[in-house]
Design a protein around this nucleic acid. Structure first.
Lengths: 232, 232
DNA sequence: TAAATACATTAACATTTCATTAAGAAATTT
DNA sequence: AAATTTCTTAATGAAATGTTAATGTATTTA
């Protein structure tokens, strides 16, 4: 029974880390152990993992910061946090970054195993346009979402903020089709409520300003539903 | 900010159940509360839920048994278990059935909320709407009910309000056939009484104005019965 | 260390969209 | 003719959206 799933484990306590790694290895996972956030991020970038287990309390770079960096690069990889005490604040922060779960130390190893299985067995996400493409052309613009640069043919060029970038990317991926508000909110803001919704409106206004350079492009609101990027 | 997500909560402690229900309701979930596994299963079958929260320890039918029955009917709906104590065995059984998560009582309500959001966000609505037809042609019109746009061949194009859109869609789906008044009222207005009926009349008038662009199309009233969209 | 920059959120106010209700006329049924 | 149902326009208030500015918070630069 080979599982082949690769897990990145980031844990600064060498004893605990070692034991946990061995336990997961025995259970047919391929485990890479990093002892702090910096090493963790390096390892993450050098290999393709299926899941990350991150200790929150770590020297140099804590688990939450590491998670944020990982999320910037990879939006879908499952994250499990380990918290030393039951620090509610850390837990909530973790979920906001996009955690899939957390465990309070000390925890039962069998339960960790069950959680890992549950997360990895999840029906392969009927995922919303998960794509590797990062270069787009639309109207008189070219758009590189990796470099976050929106360029108008005339030469005008804009550096986009992370949120501007993500929102524009989702609009472009759904060109001429509806981008439902709550889908965008849940993906970009990781929460859908009054405030994130207003924030999104502000970003729509910002994008409209950029797009003014090509008068044929419009971001149209569908009242109560979402937005649609379209030409003419 | 509408969330509209429906949660089935099965909890035998009436006080705790009530409080939890209220808390979730305040946070924009539509909650149905059942006090034991038997009632829970009945409610589950009578409606479409987006997520279930099940207490494990319950009289008559415990949460694990209920979960098993639910899983037989529905393989994807997310399940969250509540355990009174940290009963490792129950937790493991829960995961084996296909739980998405568990919480040990007493738990923090904010954390429950974070878990719910996290779970619902990664299961983008396995929505019926998605598979639904939303493009129609009739007379000299084309009609996109997803974007709520009604377009006349000549170029005239109208943005429809949600109610206009739903009503027109029902008429088109019953083209040349009677759309009974109370069926439309119950589906669109969720209630059939004097006021919703007057409101529907107003919307029929609005639709007639749009349809005037094609003189061959008529919305005909069948006195005391309903309306019929027809050509010539 | 202080100032500047970048970014996201929140506030404030304007505008638009939308559903309901009111009100009177017209049509239909009895 | 009386009662009921439908038709249509307009008025109202609530909710959603548009937009600019202010606020808060890191990070970078000087």
């Amino acid at each position: 029974m080979k599982s082949n799933k690769k897990i990145l484990l980031v844990e600064d306590d060498p004893n605990f880390g070692r034991i946990l790694k061995d336990y997961l290895t025995i259970n047919n996972y391929e485990v890479s152990l990093a002892v702090n956030g910096i090493e963790g991020f390096e390892k993450f970038n050098r290999s393709d993992f299926d899941l990350c287990i991150l200790d929150i309390m770590m020297p140099f770079k804590d688990g939450l910061t590491l998670a944020k960096e990982i999320r910037e690069v990879n939006e879908i990889i499952p994250l499990i946090f380990l918290t030393a005490k039951n620090l509610k604040d850390d837990v909530l922060k973790g979920y906001k970054i996009g955690a899939d779960d957390y465990l309070t130390k000390p925890f039962d190893s069998e339960i960790l195993l069950a959680k890992i299985k549950s997360i990895l067995n999840r029906k392969p996400n009927v995922n919303i346009e998960e794509t590797d493409t990062f270069e787009f052309e639309f109207g008189e613009f070219s758009f590189n979402s990796k470099l976050r640069i929106l360029t108008h043919k005339e030469g005008n060029s804009f550096k986009l903020s992370p949120k501007e970038n993500q929102l524009l990317k989702m609009l472009v991926l759904n060109f001429d089709d509806l981008l439902p508000r709550d889908i965008a909110l849940n993906k970009i803001w990781r929460d859908a409520n009054y405030f994130t919704s207003r924030s999104m409106d502000v970003y729509i206004a910002k994008l409209r300003k950029y797009l003014d350079n090509d008068p044929s492009l419009k971001i149209i609101n569908v009242h109560g539903e979402g937005f649609r990027l379209t030409k003419e």
